[in-house]
Design a protein around this nucleic acid. Structure first.
Length: 412
DNA sequence: TCTGGGGTCCTAGGACCC
DNA sequence: TCTGGGGTCCTAGGACCC
């Protein structure tokens, strides 16, 4: 059996940890720029507020309900997530961290102990971090995901989906709630009379392959109890790294865009160095306002002469690309930098004609070390060292209670 | 006025090759 | 008038997830 440990309303739960007064108050967390809702406590979900709803559309309703609203505080969430994963890992079974608030576990002990294991994980995570989790078990990852969803409504927060009860449970599950089936596929399936997870599990393989995709076929197998989605115990380095942000106010001039692109490149390169990799391609993109009629979006990908993690090698092409896609007279709402063709440092064969390479590597390494020791702001590119008039709007940000001394909550 | 950011994987289609 | 059949590699874009 495979287990899924899932934090309940994770971001909302994080905000509540240091604000016990909010224990019974509805909590909502907003996306960057306070744009839309990305997480809610259970009360709000029950009231029908939808994830992804633009904040300005639901602001009044949230206020009526006495909701505590927060800007997203990823520093806090990531730190608490690391702690939760540590606790789950401490039980000794293999664990695959799937997202910031979920992990698969692959228990090695006897099946009769699964319930007890689920309960133990639940109470230990709660005791050591304050985050509520639920635990579901199933024969495959897809079934464990379903079990995890059901577990959220169980009084003890644990649900075991054993083979004998699969059919009966799958009949109750709407096909759109199956992991891997989104609204698009669900619409198609409904039109063909396939409504429940059970219906989907009974489809013929060749029909799925013909009308849907290989991904969906794997989902179908998983619903039948056949493992088709691999375990990923040691997370591979990322294959693409994206850094982008919407501007809090429109940007018209190239110079400001250039500054933004430099900063995004820097963020992306830091991540690249953290996973000890180098990139082959840089994509730069800009967009005007998404919901306006004259929407303009363009990107340019530049292949680098050789793999690199040296910031100037990346900023140069990125700015050149920006120059090409920039159109005078538009008001830009967003820009970003994407690194792709990423490989580990050891993968590169070397080049007879590139003597500077070793120097650049050492330079990149040194900058990375200084930054991770003294903070990213201490050493930065001259092009980025200016005021940032376009930075994110985060008007309702909570403190970094676990990662900054200044933000430590006082104890009476 | 105000609509996120960061990922993964797959597929279709074009360019190119023999 | 007749106008192959396979490959590979790359890229853009779609669908999905959280």
């Amino acid at each position: 059996m495979i287990g899924l440990v899932d934090c309940n309303s994770f971001y909302a739960a994080c905000e509540r940890i240091f604000r016990p007064d909010l224990q019974r108050v509805p909590v909502a967390v907003l996306s960057n720029n306070d744009g839309c809702i990305v997480a809610m406590s259970s009360e709000l979900k029950a009231l029908g507020i939808k994830r992804g709803a633009p904040y300005f559309k639901v602001r009044d309703r949230l206020a009526q309900l006495g909701t505590a609203v927060f800007s997203s505080n990823y520093t806090l969430y990531q730190d608490l997530s690391d702690r939760v994963m540590d606790v789950i890992g401490s039980f000794g079974d293999p664990i695959e961290v799937y997202s910031i608030d979920e992990a698969f576990i692959f228990p090695t002990g006897p099946e009769g102990r699964l319930r007890a294991l689920g309960s133990a994980i639940r109470s230990e995570v709660s005791r050591l971090t304050g985050v509520p989790v639920s635990v579901g078990f199933g024969r495959t990852k897809t079934l464990a995901k379903l079990a995890g969803k059901i577990a959220k409504h169980e009084p003890d927060g644990v649900f075991l989906l054993d083979a004998g009860h699969e059919q009966e449970v799958l009949r109750q599950v709407n096909v759109v709630d199956v992991w891997g089936v989104g609204t698009r596929k669900a619409r198609y399936l409904y039109a063909k009379g396939i409504r429940s997870a059970y219906d989907l599990s009974r489809c013929e393989d060749h029909w799925i392959r013909k009308h849907l995709t290989l991904v969906t076929l794997k989902t179908v197998w998983e619903l039948r109890g056949i493992d088709a989605i691999e375990r990923d115990l040691s997370p591979l380095p990322r294959k693409g790294i994206l850094s982008s942000l919407g501007f809090s106010q429109g940007v018209e001039d190239l110079e400001t865009l250039r500054q933004a692109v430099v900063i995004y490149a820097q963020t992306a390169v830091t991540k690249l160095q953290e996973q000890r990799s180098e990139t082959q391609s840089v994509t730069v993109f800009v967009q005007t306002h998404r919901y306006k009629d004259d929407f303009y979006s363009n990107s340019l990908t530049l292949r680098l002469p050789m793999p690199t993690a040296y910031l100037p090698d990346i900023i140069g092409p990125a700015l050149k690309g920006l120059q090409c896609i920039f159109i005078e007279g538009l008001t830009y709402a967003k820009a970003g930098v994407y690194l792709s063709g990423i490989d580990g440092l050891d993968r590169y064969q070397g080049d007879l004609f590139d003597e500077g390479r070793d120097k650049k590597r050492k330079m990149a390494q040194a900058v990375h070390e200084v930054q991770s020791r003294y903070g990213k702001r201490i050493l930065t590119c001259r092009a980025a060292a200016s005021e940032e008039p376009w930075t994110m709007k985060r008007q309702m940000l909570s403190g970094c209670c676990t990662t900054r001394w200044e933000d430590l909550p006082p104890v009476r």
